Simulated scan of single mutants.
Amino acid sequence: MSPKSLSARVVGALALAAALPFAATACGGGDGGGGGAGGGGDTIVIGTKFDQPGLGQKNPDGTMSGFDVDVATYVAGELGYTPDKIEWKESPSAQRENLIQNGQVTFIAATYSITDARKEKVSFAGPYLITGQSLLVRSDNTDITGEASLENNKILCSVSGSTPAQKIKDKYQGVQLQQYDTYSACIDALKNGAVDAVTTDEVILAGYAAQSPGAFKIVGEPFSEERYGIGLKKDDTELRTKINDALKKMEESGAWKEAFDKNLGPAGITAPTPPPLDN
């Protein structure tokens, strides 16, 4: 994904801030129940983030919005569940594998990077989006310009259990890494000066920048490749096939690009070509 200029991101962020309240996808709590691979008779429980604008966010009126939410809603529809039969469950990064293994969700779409380590615990459909790790700093910051700036004993914030946090620990020994449960907590720490930068995937950072127009900026080039997949119970081949079929249909029908443009386009990010699905 080609990064846009900082000016385009700032302009886009302002637009996204205005657009987010209108991007809600209806959902209902239902009467509980985990749902299955394709019934439609009960509710289906889907995990996502509740605090990531543009991707997975619970709005003040209780509705859900974001690209991950729209992808999950489309998939649920193909499995036989209308939006009012979806029960959304908050899925912080560090809890995702447990939620799947314990049967608390049918699947998770929550900026969930496909990794070999995670494949030992859960299975993945997709990927449905490829992005890259980047950095968010306060708008008046001048000494962090990209990943090379991190070695100067900077205080960097990311989320426990996330791929970006692990990458920082593995690659950047000169960084003071602060780990919180949510990215919104990292954003608060960045606002009040407790940390110098926040790191995660560029699409996530763009959404947060949009919430506080003029306060933050994304710097440098993405320095990883993150492949977002839909997590589900390990070796559930039937459900994985059904989800991949749904993703393929969403991409071919144009609904995938429509969802991307609605949720992330206003942040200055151009919709890429959907990635090929894993076999």
Rank of each mutant, 00 (worst) to 15 (best):
I155G: 08
L156T: 11
C157L: 03
S158Y: 00
G161S: 07
S162Y: 01
T163M: 12
P164L: 01
P164I: 00
A165F: 04
Q166M: 12
Q166V: 08
K169F: 02
K171P: 06
K171H: 13
K171A: 12
Q173E: 15
V175A: 05
V175R: 02
Q176S: 13
Q178Y: 14
Q179I: 08
Q179S: 13
Y180T: 15
Y180K: 15
D181M: 12
T182L: 10
T182G: 10
Y183G: 12
S184G: 07
S184F: 04
I187K: 04
D188R: 10
D188N: 12
D188P: 07
D188M: 09
A189F: 00
A189I: 01
N192L: 09
D196K: 00
A197P: 04
A197Y: 01
V198P: 09
T199L: 00
T199K: 01
T200D: 14
T200N: 09
T200Q: 04
T200P: 05
D201P: 10
D201T: 13
E202W: 11
V203G: 11
I204M: 14
I204A: 13
A206P: 05
A206K: 02
G207R: 02
G207K: 04
G207I: 03
G207V: 05
A209Y: 04
A210I: 06
Q211L: 06
S212T: 11
P213H: 00
G214R: 01
G214C: 07
F216Y: 14
K217R: 12
I218S: 10
G220E: 07
E221P: 07
F223P: 02
F223E: 03
E226D: 15
E226C: 11
R227N: 15
Y228G: 07
G229R: 00
G229E: 00
D235K: 09
D235G: 08
D235Q: 12
D236I: 02
T237E: 13
E238C: 08
E238A: 15
I243C: 07
I243A: 08
N244R: 06
N244M: 07
A246S: 09
L247D: 03
L247G: 03
L247T: 02
K248M: 09
K249L: 12
K249D: 13
M250G: 05
E251D: 11
